[in-house]
Design a binder for these strands. Sequence first.
DNA 1: GTGCAAGGTGGAACCGCTTCCAAGTATACC
DNA 2: GGTATACTTGGAAGCGGTTCCACCTTGCAC
Lengths: 337, 337
Amino acid sequence: MSATIRDVARRAGVGLGTVSRVLNNSPLVSDATRQRVLDVIAELDYAPSHVARNLSLGRTQTIAAIAPFFTRPSVVERLRGAEATLAGSPYDLVVFNVESVERRNSCLQTVPRRDRYDGLLLISLAPQPAEVAAMRSAGVPVVVIDKTVPDLPCVTIDDQAGGHMATYHLINLGHRRIAYLSDPLRDPLNFEFTSSQDRYLGYRKALANAGISFRDDYHVSGPHDRYEARVLAQRLLAMDEPPTAIFAASDTQAMGVLEAARDCRLRVPHDLSVIGFDDIDVAAYLNLTTIRQPLFETGARGVEMLLTMLENPDRTHSNERLPVSLVVRGTTAPVAG
Amino acid sequence: MSATIRDVARRAGVGLGTVSRVLNNSPLVSDATRQRVLDVIAELDYAPSHVARNLSLGRTQTIAAIAPFFTRPSVVERLRGAEATLAGSPYDLVVFNVESVERRNSCLQTVPRRDRYDGLLLISLAPQPAEVAAMRSAGVPVVVIDKTVPDLPCVTIDDQAGGHMATYHLINLGHRRIAYLSDPLRDPLNFEFTSSQDRYLGYRKALANAGISFRDDYHVSGPHDRYEARVLAQRLLAMDEPPTAIFAASDTQAMGVLEAARDCRLRVPHDLSVIGFDDIDVAAYLNLTTIRQPLFETGARGVEMLLTMLENPDRTHSNERLPVSLVVRGTTAPVAG
DNA sequence: GTGCAAGGTGGAACCGCTTCCAAGTATACC
DNA sequence: GGTATACTTGGAAGCGGTTCCACCTTGCAC
């Protein structure tokens, strides 16, 4: 079908090794020979076989990314950061979308294979110790994004600080009855705590610092979903003593809260303050006050770390924590007198 | 490092060919031998090298997808459909995100290589004739999603019917002053017409059928972006004789229209009817009337077509057009008396 | 003129798998 | 017992690269 290195060698009247050296920019070729080989390559429209080269070199030039719920804006943005960073490298990015525990398990079990991928990016997915051990013994470099996993380099944000920041902002506005609406603190997909848990801790800490006692009934949680959040928020707003502000663990859930406020004919922010988390694209559109986390950057940084690990296998990598910031928009205001 | 087929053969006391036959479920192995080999494979925790097998078989087991603007909900949903369908196959999905003309060109030039990908999925991206020719001569099977390209199998929706449907819905509600807000009808990324163009034709046709004369100043276009759409809509609403209904070529742009309506203190749908296109996730949240197109399904269907092309290289594939439907929600209403 | 380092070069061996052919071993049938 | 038939089986060759070693030139110092 297509030309091989042998065709080039024959045509150029040189040996296989010489063509290979030209291809790999080895200095051990005379200029004249190099030019001749280059000419033949152009003439034959020859391109070296990626697969053959990889077999010979014992690599795949491919990085796998496993991420839950593709469609979540936060995940997409992280993926976008990863893709953008990889675009400047010779690596391909193959993606796996996880939407069930079965698929999570099968991906985590089958994907980390040294002969298939040179590196693995785990987005918002925390492997269990046994799975970490399997990855290690498979020899696949792994970087985790948006989760902290023992023995694995991680890129995270300071969820606790974010939770504190959000709550503190509300307290500063005079709110005392502040609810927290989140995902379940334990994540069925990961058998471990979610970032909602850390944001919760920040929330608790901010309350405590301000001398506001925590009310159990002001914390509600349910699936990461706008509709679920709406129902939860409706429940909060129907209480005898409803909160004057709601901190949602994600912008998506904050959207559900806004919807519930509308259902109850509450004006935001006059009757109810709402703050989200993530600063996804729509947050600006909704004029939603939120905690911004650098989504794109975590994806990009994760890939950077992975790439340096590939170049330098023995260097160990520590965790990195990217900063969050408060973005004040129009859904939070001083508590109504 | 890891065990090879030779290790297995030696250990099981059989030949290379026999192990290979066991791996490939060839019936030409006695049960006793097969079991022995299987035992050794389990014992050695052997897994055949993907790369080596691919080199030998002359394939890559990889499909590339090139898509513009990852972050657009419609693109993500298509990608999700593609990934989900591929998950049941032995193929990997590698993704390329295109956000500039340069990257578009470089992707379209470098990705279609037979030795790198077994198949190519083009999402909302239309190659030019020269590029199509290059793909053909490279021998890479290609399926196009959301664009119609001569000589290439395509999965599309009936944009013109959708445009007609949206406009007809508004006319039915008594609207006569109906504006159309869209992307530029010509797409800089694709050097060709966009789906906005076909929706535009449907819009024009519906107007004509109803005996409503087309007004040039009721058609505005700009980049596919909420903010741009907002500005465009503001301009429409500031006209001496503003439209009573706006048909936006995408839900994302419809969001900008809603925003502009809010800016102008217009109540939707009482003062202004708004209809979108796509039925992305947020549409339901915004209670947006829209034209639903099967995004996930186009991705899935595109992959299915590609897979059958891979199995059966000589069968030619025709284009497929998936149906759209009107989803009436709360942003359209009879024109105010 | 000889010796030697350094620059160029060819090609066998190898990466790990599949495939195909030759050959061995039963079994069946006459 | 001989031979045709059907299973099994081993392993060389090939997929298309890279690498390493041996070998050949040069050029330069002595």
